[in-house]
């Protein structure tokens, strides 16, 4: 899967480094982009590419909080909870997310659209409170901005779902072990 989709890229990534193994984080990042989370198959494949055992790759991946080893929603919200954001009201922001999405921290909505996480300092404390939505920073957040953000993301990924399944049908990958989402 990884090798098929990123055939042209993998070698280039590995060649950036004096030692092959250094490519593990970039490849994990790429792999996660493919399926939203790191499946056992993806970890094994990275191991094969980098001459590492699958448990070794797993052990590396599990160290970092941006890697997901379990299925997650199409959109991931990471709400910063550390001090500067807390002083600026991140506690209320997190509660609002929970209420609006009907899920708690670490959970995913039933429709698979959103996962919610509390996160440690995002390095943007001067514009607290901060939410990282997928890969985008949203700074000086308040409840109105949160509403707008959730609405925008829902719309974007509603379209995504259609495109994604179309892609899956075309490439015959609809039967990957991870399409068993509710």
């Amino acid at each position: 899967m990884l090798r098929e989709k990123l055939a042209g890229e993998i070698q280039g990534i590995i060649e950036r480094y004096p030692e092959k193994r250094s490519a593990v984080l970039p490849l994990l990042e790429k792999a996660q982009e493919l399926q939203g989370h790191l499946t056992k198959e993806l970890l094994e494949e990275i191991g094969e590419v980098l001459d590492m055992s699958a448990p070794e790759v797993y052990s590396v991946a599990s160290f970092y909080s941006m890697f997901h080893l379990e299925p997650v929603g199409k959109n991931r919200l990471y709400v910063c909870r550390t001090l500067s954001c807390a002083l600026a009201g991140s506690g209320d922001l997190l509660s609002a997310c929970e209420k609006k999405l009907g899920i708690g921290e670490g959970e995913t909505t039933e429709d698979g659209q959103f996962s919610l996480f509390s996160f440690e300092c995002l390095g943007s404390c001067g514009t607290a409170p901060v939410i990282m939505a997928n890969r985008e920073y949203h700074e000086e957040m308040d409840l109105a901005k949160l509403d707008a953000l959730l609405e925008r993301l829902s719309k974007e990924t509603a379209n995504d779902v259609v495109e994604q399944s179309a892609v899956n049908e075309r490439s015959g990958e609809g039967d990957s072990p991870d399409s068993r989402e509710p």
Partner: peptide, 9 residues
Amino acid sequence: VVHRGAGAY
């Protein structure tokens, strides 16, 4: 080379 970490203080 620009190398991205993955979230760990």
